[in-house]
Design a protein around this nucleic acid. Sequence first.
DNA 1: CAAGTTAGTTAGCGTTCACTTACAAAAGTA
DNA 2: TACTTTTGTAAGTGAACGCTAACTAACTTG
Lengths: 195, 195
Amino acid sequence: MQQFTDRQIEIMEAATNRISKFGIQNLTIKTLAEDIGLSEPALYRHFKSKNEILWSLLEYFKTEMRNRIQSLPFKTSDSEATKLRAIFNSQLQTFVNKPAIVSVIFAESIFHYEENLSNKVAEIMDMMQDFVKANIKRGQELEQYNNLIGASTLTTIIIGGMRMTVLKWKLSGHKSNLIKDGKAVLEGILKMIEK
Amino acid sequence: MQQFTDRQIEIMEAATNRISKFGIQNLTIKTLAEDIGLSEPALYRHFKSKNEILWSLLEYFKTEMRNRIQSLPFKTSDSEATKLRAIFNSQLQTFVNKPAIVSVIFAESIFHYEENLSNKVAEIMDMMQDFVKANIKRGQELEQYNNLIGASTLTTIIIGGMRMTVLKWKLSGHKSNLIKDGKAVLEGILKMIEK
DNA sequence: CAAGTTAGTTAGCGTTCACTTACAAAAGTA
DNA sequence: TACTTTTGTAAGTGAACGCTAACTAACTTG
């Protein structure tokens, strides 16, 4: 029971790579078809519009992300900080393995003009936010984190700090060390909030 | 000695508003000309290309931002935290007064395909980063801030947290309280680093 | 007041866009 | 083997794009 065919996945990955390398402006049906080695109408055999390609691509990553995070092997003895480290580590590893994804996921504004696309991007952001906020709340209730800052604000700071790190990595042409820099940010924040 | 003519500023502001409301995809010479009530070729009397309109717009804001921050009325008795509050307060106020700017400044990816434009956006980000990093370093040297985290990482966290707050405000359709939320983030971080 | 400049117009250029039509080869199935 | 479905193609559509050519009215200046 697969949600997408092999060809569809091939198209979505080619689209992601195009966007990552040359920006959304350069993603046209023509360039996309050339990347895969097909004609333009062939793409319309697999998706009914360009919009649907982008929507599917976001949906595909959203599902992958939720499954991956939800199946992280947590032990009941793990502290909330340990869990948070695991979540972000998994996320950063995914970005390093497939840097092109970042260009799509972190670009709220590129889909500004297409409501269903910007909604999908917002959904992905919200999901990550919910994971982090739940962690903070449990950590504060269990008194593993201090209560200097409210859970909402703290979530904003953590996600903001991580996003900023990813953005810098992207702007450096993936030459900075994302895993190391991301860890530094998370450990820094944890150092300030762990009891 | 003005860098831009009135008409040029009118065009740049109209462009900013277009991008903010409908995204970069909807900014065409035609829509822009209609917004101002001129014909398309008239725009080419004031800028030699669409690219130059966007570049000028970024340059215009960059200059405004540097002048504004550099002329903040600091007293020698002000603590570094006080200065940092003033910098961000000034920045957030600017965004509230002209929300359209945010769409342009915070959108690294929309100009991905035009090197001179993405460079300008990077310049603006670097400038803000330098202001914050300098503040953190002085604060740590003067022992007003603790040394739990290095200045670079801390700068990433602060800028990241603020950017995230602005992004949320934008995604809420400017309905959240940017000033209040921004203050909460900054005060939260200061609470953790102030000695 | 003649000459030049500034700031605007209408009309249209060549190109690219997402998408469609009509047809053909291959693959699966009876 | 005959029929159907799937997956591909070449050729072309109308609309939209950035930008230009050719022209003009109003102002400025020696």
